[in-house]
Design a protein around this nucleic acid. Structure first.
Lengths: 133, 133, 133, 133
DNA sequence: GTGGTCTAGACCACC
DNA sequence: GTGGTCTAGACCACG
């Protein structure tokens, strides 16, 4: 996996990295039990303070996305979405949808346009058994 | 127009208000030359520091979304939806899409499920025509 | 609320503080919407680096225990346990129980003794409508 | 005796093994003068670096829990359950109880529910008599 | 005033 | 080698 940071962006470095890791997993580019680069390696690679990388790994660990074994390394975890209530998950998804559509309209697109483009884009995302119905 | 602020949200108050005004214009709920409520009225209505409202009006004026006519009031400016190039806006939309789909997958939904639900959801709103094509 | 840190202990400072805050909430000594001391105040009070306190607040925020409103302060959140599956919650509780009983036996107590003492101690904990049955 | 290591757990491997050996003795599954498996055998059995097993044996010997007879093997020492004072052990137990109840309440259980379940759970094990009274 | 982010550099425990 | 924790001190955004 290759990660890149845009230091000019206003979104924090740790946020950019977190998002990229989550996206890589959602797209199936990283699989459960895959080994992540070490904190020091990754910090050198993307030219960022090791603490910042460590923070990302720690937060993703607490969110259940990664597993870290001190002294050994950091690994991609199993998906734990099924620990959440169907209701909570659907509420969260609806919030995401509203946010997405609102921002798309801010950009001057119609909802239909945004969804069409999203449909094309979704091909890159890992198919997954639905658990919400 | 009715505006609402979620003080519990992580997005700054001034950003929420700015976004809502822009969204209202984009959706055609506010039209060019419509008069905006005064800073004091609006600050009372949404229970927010007047400084914050003033800041929003100032920034939106600088961005050409609003016009202030001193001693008269604040008014909606002419449509500037094309302030971004088509390319920049599309790039931003793609980023939004990726972010949305990533989160949906992490919630345990498939991309298809998320988009289906988004399609239903989008019909509950009155979105304006896209301007990107 | 008064918090104290044992710098001689081997359990990390941030862990001690986190545990105390969680315990105060569980015992009803801190209630939803109560305001927490500011990062700087608390760091001065317990003589710890502000970053360490900030870390605690950030983590508890991500866990849904606290709400932070940047520029305003940090507040106790509502209990969100109902977002988790009954199954996930019960599994977690059973793990807690096993861990507790095992450690008690390590200390040379019988399970019965440990549970008797826990029964007395539990009077200090806030009663709460069971949601597991 | 059968030992198992959970490499995914956050508690260090050497700590898991140490705790299990102590627990086995506390529960009466290992008795004074019982012979422990060799470092090499045990490391193969639980798939762990031999250094780690050696460290555990060394530490337990230093703590008086095991005895090494060079060229012969490692053996369980005489019972030292009273190595802590009654007061220190009770303080530690109270801390464990508070921690347990806090987590249970945050999971949405009442203290009473948690203790009831703990009571049932405790009967599935063969705990030894308490030594604190 | 508030919290949020980042860096630099230290020391520790674990394997 | 690995990750975990803590400090000191900086700068920023927000209200």
């Amino acid at each position: 996996m290759q990660f890149w940071i845009d230091t000019a962006s206003r979104t924090p470095i740790y946020r950019q990295l977190k998002d990229q890791i989550r996206a890589a997993i959602a797209r199936g580019k990283l699989h459960p039990d895959d080994r992540m680069p070490s904190v020091r390696d990754l910090s050198r690679q993307i030219v960022v303070n090791p603490n910042t990388v460590a923070r990302v790994y720690t937060e993703l660990e607490r969110e259940g996305v990664l597993n870290t074994r001190p002294g050994v390394g950091v690994f991609v975890a199993q998906n734990r979405a099924d620990e959440f209530t169907r209701k909570a998950r659907k509420e969260r998804l609806l919030a995401l949808i509203d946010q997405f559509l609102t921002e798309a309209v801010h950009l001057g697109f119609s909802a239909a346009e945004a969804l069409t483009l999203a449909g094309e884009r979704s091909q890159q995302f890992q198919w997954q058994e639905g658990t919400s119905s």
